[in-house]
Amino acid sequence: MPRIKSLEDLKKIKENAKDLTSARSEGKTRVVIGMGTCGIAAGARKVMDAVLAELEKRGLHDVTVETTGCIGMCQQEPLLDVIRAGQGRITYGKVEPEDVPRIIADHVVNGTIVQDKVIGRAD
């Protein structure tokens, strides 16, 4: 481990270690994936893997990934919600792993909702 010699060194360590605790802080954009039996049967695991891979690729620290149970829209699974400050909760349906980079880039990062996949909105 390099010795800390200055404020810059300390900041560097802090930046690099950010992921250590990032999931524990609040007030960030949330991605919620439906992981009920229906979701898993429809391929939610692959969607989850794609989300985690995409976030890591883009180095997005201030996004949390949560799972949720069945919400009764089983025919639309896999479901993925994005909750971004000021935009309420947007639910995407029939999400394929291929859709994930688009949702992350457009909605999570830039705030532009991916309209063709939206099946529900809530505040």
Binding site: N16, T21, A23, M48, L52, E56, H61, T64, E66
Partner: peptide
């Protein structure tokens, strides 16, 4: 560093 989506604090 891998991104951990959930942290379980014990």
């Amino acid at each position: 560093m891998a991104l951990y989506r959930a942290h379980v604090l014990v």
